[in-house]
Computed example of a mutant assay.
Amino acid sequence: MPPPSEPEAANKAARGGDSDAPRQEIVKAAAELFMDLGYRATSIDAIAERMGSTKGRVYHWYRSKAEIYFDVQRSAMRRLTELVEPIAREGGPPQQRIERMARAHVDCLLHDLPMQKVSVQGLETHVITSDSVRHAKAMREIVGLRDAYEALFCEVIDEGIRAGVFVDLPPRLLSKPFFGALNWVTIWYRPRRLQTEDDLQMLGEMLTEFAVRGILKERN
């Protein structure tokens, strides 16, 4: 079954009667394959097989693998933002808020590893260079989502700097090693068969403490 035309795909996305569930099922299956195989080795056929479906069903919702990949990115950033933004916007001491934000961030990474690992890995070179003009709008959108998410942390870090709690460096510069400490878990972490929720909670606490300690100002 050939993929629908671009207007048809846009119309399907805009139709109020279409449920988001089928798209999320495709995105979830694709994220698992992108994580295990990488972008290049993942095919529409493989995504359909992972779902136990036909590729015609995938093409009903998506015109290409790249479109699915971008939706994985969007879904990952949406989940993180929904968890973290309410914490960032509420009042309270900046150190407490950044600790809770970091914990929400790393917990999401641990519990939603395929989606978040693909997101952390970023826009792969193949996607960017294969058809840069065609995908430029989607890439700008994803970069914008990432920048907005990072800004939530930078705003709270800036409050902490002005309060004398965090290291006196530009917030965006300080956020880089902070996110690095948290996001590195997507590189080395693999779920274990006998792993418990308590194990994940302990890991989340350790990573959060380590990341926050790295931006705290030393006390005399």
Rank of each mutant, 00 (worst) to 15 (best):
R134L: 15
I26N: 06
P7V: 14
P3C: 03
K137Q: 11
A30V: 10
K12M: 09
V143H: 10
A181V: 13
F179A: 05
D20W: 12
I47T: 05
H60P: 00
E218M: 04
Q96N: 14
E141H: 13
E99P: 02
Q96Y: 03
P22Q: 05
G92H: 03
A46Q: 08
R140M: 13
A151I: 00
I215S: 02
R103E: 14
T125G: 06
E155G: 10
M51G: 02
E197W: 02
N11A: 15
A13C: 04
L80W: 15
L113D: 09
V127E: 09
I215L: 03
A66V: 15
H105W: 15
C108D: 14
P2F: 04
R100P: 04
L169P: 02
L33N: 13
S64L: 03
L80P: 02
P93H: 11
A14H: 01
A181L: 13
R74A: 07
T196S: 15
R192W: 03
S175T: 11
A88N: 05
E25G: 15
D71I: 09
D20C: 04
I128Y: 06
R190G: 07
H111M: 11
L169M: 12
L83W: 01
P22L: 04
F153E: 02
L173E: 12
V72M: 07
L173Y: 07
G180R: 02
K12P: 01
V27T: 15
S43W: 02
K217H: 04
R78F: 09
K28L: 05
R190Y: 00
E67H: 06
N11M: 11
A148Q: 07
L200W: 00
M51Y: 08
L169V: 01
A136S: 09
P4C: 02
I47H: 07
L83V: 05
G144N: 12
R100Y: 00
L173H: 10
L216Y: 00
A46N: 05
D131K: 03
D112Y: 13
V156P: 08
K217R: 15
K217L: 15
A30K: 12
E141K: 11
L113W: 10
V58E: 10
E67D: 14
L169T: 01
R192M: 14
S175H: 08
V133D: 12
C154N: 14
M101L: 08
M1W: 05
M202P: 00
F153R: 00
L207K: 07
Y62W: 01
C108Y: 08
Y149A: 07
I44Q: 04
F153A: 02
D158C: 00
K117H: 08
E197G: 03
I215A: 07
D158T: 01
V106F: 09
P93S: 11
V106K: 03
D131E: 15
A138P: 00
I128A: 13
R146H: 03
A102H: 06
R50V: 13
Q201H: 05
I87A: 01
E82H: 08
A29P: 04
Q116F: 10
D45I: 09
M206Y: 01
A48T: 08
A138E: 14
V72H: 07
L80G: 07
L207C: 09
T196C: 06
V212Q: 05
Q195N: 05
V72E: 03
V165R: 06
R219Q: 13
G164I: 04
N220S: 14
L169E: 12
T129A: 15
G52C: 10
